[in-house]
C-alpha cells in the first residue's frame, strides 16, 4: 500500500526482499546502506539473532529524491528466510508495493529457492496480493561461487512471469543497485497506472 501524502508532498513505498535462508537478503541491504550517501538514508535496523540471522526483519529507509515535486521515499525490508519464521514473513508482506526475490545460485540450495518462491506466492495470496500483478524482480545471487548453477538453468526453474532478472554478488555489490533500480522503476510505473 503506497502512502501518498499530498500535504507533506511525500510518497512512501515498501519493498520487500524475499528468499530462502542465507541467500543474501540482508547483504543486499547492507551494501545499499554502505554505498548510499548519508543524507539519503536512515538507519539500517536489523532485528537479528546473536549469530546474525534475521529474526524479524531488516529495515532501511531510502530517500531517492523528488519526482514531480514529490519526495520519493522507499522503505526496504527483508524477511527472515528460515522456514520456521513463516508467521513473521507474512507480517512483513503487509502493505508491500514491490518484491525482490533473492535466489541462492548454489546447486545445493535450488530446492530451498523453489520452496521459498512457493512460500512467497502463498503468503502474498493470504495478504490479498497476486505475484502475477505485483512489481517483482528476480536476483540470482552468489554468482561468484564455483558451485553456482548456470543462469539458464536457474531461470528455467525460478522465472515466474518473465520478470526482470539480475545476476549478483551481493558481497561486493555486483548487481545490487541494478536490482533495486529495477524494482523501484516497476513500483513507480505501477503508480502511474493508478
Amino acid at each position: 500500500m503506497t502512502f501518498i501524502n499530498y500535504a507533506a508532498r511525500e510518497i512512501n513505498c515498501k519493498i520487500v526482499f524475499y528468499g530462502p535462508g542465507l541467500c543474501g537478503k540482508t547483504t543486499n541491504l547492507q551494501w545499499i546502506y554502505d554505498k548510499t550517501n548519508p543524507q539519503a538514508k536512515g538507519k539500517l535496523i536489523s532485528l537479528a539473532t546473536e549469530t546474525d540471522r534475521t529474526l524479524f526483519f531488516d529495515f532501511l529507509p531510502l530517500d531517492l529524491g523528488t519526482v514531480k515535486g514529490f519526495k520519493t521515499r522507499f522503505h526496504l525490508y527483508t524477511v527472515p528466510g528460515q522456514v520456521f519464521y513463516d508467521a513473521s514473513r507474512k507480517l512483513i508482506l503487509k502493505g508491500v508495493d514491490g518484491v525482490v526475490y533473492v535466489a541462492d545460485s548454489q546447486e545445493a540450495r535450488m530446492d530451498s529457492n523453489i520452496e521459498s518462491l512457493q512460500n512467497l506466492e502463498k503468503n502474498l495470496k493470504e495478504q490479498g496480493y497476486d505475484l502475477n500483478n505485483i512489481p517483482y524482480v528476480l536476483q540470482f545471487n552468489k554468482r561468484d561461487l564455483p558451485t553456482a548453477l548456470p543462469v539458464e538453468e536457474m531461470y528455467r526453474q525460478l522465472n515466474y512471469k518473465g520478470e526482470p532478472t539480475f545476476e549478483a554478488v551481493a558481497m561486493n555489490g555486483t548487481g545490487v543497485f541494478d536490482t533495486l533500480k529495477a524494482v523501484a522503476k516497476l513500483v513507480l510505473t505501477e503508480l502511474k497506472k493508478k
Partner: peptide
C-alpha cells in the same frame, strides 16, 4: 489526478543518477 500519471522513464532514471 495522480501526480505520477505523467512520470517518465527519465524521471525515474534521474532518481538513480548519483
Amino acid at each position: 489526478e495522480s501526480p505520477f500519471a505523467e512520470i517518465t522513464d527519465e524521471d525515474i532514471d534521474s532518481l538513480f543518477s548519483e
